[in-house]
């Protein structure tokens, strides 16, 4: 076997080990966080503060992206539906795609960009300024102090954001279907009643809660694994956003297959 082939095998092995180490670390963080939550050792004041910062302060950007997305989905659907004479399905189609996929996933991607980056940057800065070691030296768990409040806050706030995202996307969709394609509001709402499903809606919220947990766990893990000063914080932050978005798409794919079969 040539030296080039050996090097390739070594690189593949090293890459695989890195992925497994990362997955193992993320799993450990999840288990330890879950243990604190299960034993009700949650710091409530910090949890509310994080719910405000990670959730409520993300509302505007989530509403903006969801409204525009709902409108454009409705516009595309309405144009075709009217030309085929099936304008009575537009409301249902918008509701269907929004509650199942677009609402939870787009909200999660937007929040990953904002909150995931903030989490990784904050925890990464704490690592490089020795604040994490300071916590440990005081006999305090960084997971309980830092990860758990963010995790609980996001698991609660992500579905709330998704509910809002669903509502504005559907309302925006109805408005555009009416103004640009001439579909009456009554027809749009009747279509929602006929084709929309409450089960789709709450399954979307389950997805949202899972995405919220993913964003926090990846952000925290990236932040806590930071090495190498300011440059390291930058790498962790970028990595947190990229990885969270990839995991959101992959998880969404798997959850859709499981929940909507």
């Amino acid at each position: 076997m040539g030296a080039h082939a050996i090097k390739t095998i070594e690189d593949v092995g090293r890459g695989a080990t890195g992925v497994l180490e990362y997955a193992g670390g993320l799993a450990m963080l999840s288990v330890e966080s879950a243990a604190f939550i299960a034993s009700l050792r949650v710091r409530l004041k910090e949890t509310f503060e994080q719910a405000y910062f990670l959730g409520i302060q993300s509302t505007v950007i989530v509403l903006l992206t969801s409204t525009l997305t709902g409108m454009i989905v409705s516009f595309e659907a309405a144009q075709n539906a009217v030309s085929y004479g099936i304008s009575n399905v537009v409301g249902g189609a918008v509701t269907f795609t929004t509650s199942r996929e677009l609402g939870p996933m787009l909200s999660a991607v937007v929040v990953a960009g904002r909150a995931g980056a903030a989490i990784a940057a904050e925890l990464g800065s704490m690592v490089v300024t020795e604040q994490i070691e300071a916590l440990e030296s005081l006999g305090l768990s960084p997971i309980r102090m830092l990860v758990v409040p963010r995790l609980v806050a996001m698991i609660v706030m992500m579905p709330v954001l998704t509910i809002l995202a669903d509502i504005v996307a559907i309302v925006g969709g109805g408005y555009l279907a009416h103004t640009l394609a001439g579909i009456p509001y009554d027809t749009f709402t009747e279509s929602i009643r006929n084709y929309g499903s409450f089960s789709d809606f709450w399954k979307g919220l389950i997805k949202a809660a899972v995405f919220g947990a993913l964003i926090v766990l990846v952000g925290c893990y990236q932040g806590l694994s930071t090495r190498g000063g300011a440059a390291g914080v930058g790498r962790s932050t970028t990595g947190a956003v990229v990885l969270a978005i990839i995991l959101i798409f992959v998880t969404n794919f798997m959850m859709s297959l499981i929940l909507f079969r």
Binding site: A134, L138, G139
Partner: peptide, 19 residues
């Protein structure tokens, strides 16, 4: 070990105060 650390004070080089 966590309990042991609670009996040991540690002053860090750059103070490491929680900002």
């Amino acid at each position: 070990l966590v309990k042991f650390r609670q009996k040991v004070g540690f002053s860090f080089q750059f103070a490491a105060l929680f900002d």
